[in-house]
Design a protein around this nucleic acid. Sequence first.
DNA 1: AATACGTGGTA
DNA 2: TTACCAAGTAT
Length: 386
Amino acid sequence: MHGVIRVDGQGTQMAGVAKLQRRPQATVRNPIARDIAPALLGWYDRERRQMPWRAELGERADPYRVWLSEIMLQQTTVKTVTPYFEAFVARWPDVRSLADTELEEVLAAWAGLGYYSRARNLHACAKAIVAEHGGRFPKNEAKLLELPGIGPYTAAAIASIAFGERVTPVDGNVERVVSRLFAVREPLPLSKPALRSLAATLTPMTRTGDFAQAMMDLGATVCTPKSPSCLMCPLNSDCTARKLGIEARLPARTPKGERPARFGIAFIALREDGAVLLRKRPENGLLGGMLEVPSTDWLDMLPSATDAMRIAPAKGDWWKVPSTVRHVFSHFELELVVYRAVVPFDAPLTFWADQPRCRWVPRRDLDSQALPSVMKKVIAHGLREM
DNA sequence: AATACGTGGTA
DNA sequence: TTACCAAGTAT
C-alpha cells in the first residue's frame, strides 16, 4: 500500500484521504494532481492581480511585506487590508522600525482592522525577529512557526512566497478549491486535515510561492463561495464537484451556534473644553490594549438607569442619548445605551475613573487614538448634534 | 477539540 | 434584517 488516493467522485475518496493523513510521507499517485499546477500557474501568469505586497513577476518578494500582509489578511479581505498595509509600510518600512515603536501606536494604526491580538502579536513578532534573529526573518516554515502570531497557514505562506520553500499554505480559499476539485463532502472543520493532505499533493516542485498565491487568487476570484465561475476556471476539466454538479454546495460546513446578546451602558464624559474621557482596556482578551469609553460590563441584562448613575465616572447631569448602538462581534452581539454629561474641570472623578488607565483626550485627537470600531460608533453616537 | 477573538461587505 | 463570509491564531 502506497497511500494512493482514490478520487472517483463516488464517495469513497475519504477512505484514501484518511490513510494519507496517517502516512503523509507516503507517495501519492493521484491521477489528476499532476495536471493541476501547470494549468493553474499558466492561469496565474495571465490573470495575476498586482497587490502592494507582491513582487513583480520574477522578482523576490520582501519577507517583511509578505509577513505584514499575511497577518493583516487573516480573516480579512484584500480590499479592507490594502489601505492599512500602505499606511503601515509608509510609516514602518522594516521590522526594526516596527519593533522600536510603542505597542499603543501600532494598535492605533491597526484600529478598525479587528482581531487586535494580531497587532499585539505583530509587535511582539517584530521584537522577537530583532532580538533573536538579528532583524532577519527565519527562512523556513518550522522556524517561522515559532514566532508569535504566525500559525500553520502564515508560516507556510511566508516560507513559500518569500523564500521559495516547498510547503503548502492552506487557507479558506485553498480549502474551498480543494474540496471542490476532489468533491470532499465531509463538512469543515472536520475535513481540514484531509483537505490539507490533498492540497499538499498538488504543490509543484518549483514556483511554490506562485502556486500558493494562484490557489488563493483562484478561490478569491473564480472558485468563489456562492456562484463559482466554472466556465472561467483553468481547472474546470479536473473538477470532480463540477462533474457531479455539486460545486456550489461545497465545502459543507457544520452549522455555527447562535450569537448571544449582551448589553451595557457607555458613558461619554465631556470636559468643559470638549475633551472626552477614555480608558485603556486590559492588555489581553477582547479589544485588548485598545481604548474605550468608560462603560459597564457587557452582560446578558441591561443595568438599570439607577445602577448606571451609580457607576458613572463622575457626578453630573447625565443625559440618555436617544436610541442605542448595536455592534456585532464574532461571538456575541452588543447593544449599548449611551449616556452623556458635561463634566467641570474640577469635578471629582469616581475612584475607578481616576486611575492611570483613564485619560482625557481632546476631540480633535480622537481620530488618531487606538479606538476600535465599536467605540468609534459609540462616540459618534454620543456626540451627534454637537 | 472547542471557543475566543472584529469588522465590513453581500445576498 | 438575518446570515454568511474573508489570505487564522492562541489557548
